[in-house]
């Protein structure tokens, strides 16, 4: 009875954002983003601030959904929530002043059967999106260096 009440209380404390499907309650923490933010504003500026990062996230999700290598992974996923949490994660890591409200990388990718090759496909799509947004190549690589170690939590064992 008590855990049920607690879950109910947590759920009511975390309203479901518009257009998203509800998820089981979990503890919010910036540490869930899986890496520490950059210092200073140089990276946030290199990515074009909020409009730049929103465009990159939208482009990335669109490329993944259309990519025959990994499209299956995105089928019947909540893409509205994915876009929001991805934006928050990038914004947090690029020191754009956001908090990350998504799940840990391990939880968010649990039971998806993701292979090492899938993470490489995702990296290529992100590279294409960043290139399209004219993010300088060295800045692209600095973000990728933050994201790369997350493969340990993302790729199915």
């Amino acid at each position: 009875m008590f855990p049920f009440a607690l879950a109910l209380a947590l759920q009511s404390a975390q309203p479901v954002p518009a257009g998203e499907e509800p998820v089981a309650p979990y503890a919010h923490a910036n540490a869930n983003a899986g890496a520490t933010p950059f210092e200073g504003q140089a990276m946030w500026r290199a990515f074009g601030g909020e409009p730049g990062v929103r465009a990159i996230v939208d482009d990335l999700v669109a490329r993944n959904v259309a990519d025959p290598r990994i499209a299956d992974i995105f089928k019947s996923r909540d893409l509205v929530r994915l876009r929001r949490t991805l934006y928050e994660q990038f914004c947090y890591l690029l020191n754009g002043g956001c908090d990350y409200s998504g799940q840990t990388m391990a939880t968010a990718h649990k039971d998806m059967g993701i292979q090492q090759a899938d993470t490489a496909a995702l990296v290529e799509n992100l590279q294409a999106a960043m290139r399209h947004a004219r993010v300088p190549f060295p800045a692209q690589n600095r973000l990728l260096a933050k994201l790369a170690p997350m493969h340990r939590d993302v790729v199915a064992k």
Partner: peptide, 14 residues
């Protein structure tokens, strides 16, 4: 077998 765990995807090195 879930759809996502289908066959091995070829390649995978950048």
């Amino acid at each position: 077998t879930p759809a996502v765990a289908g066959d091995r995807r070829a390649g995978g090195k950048l």
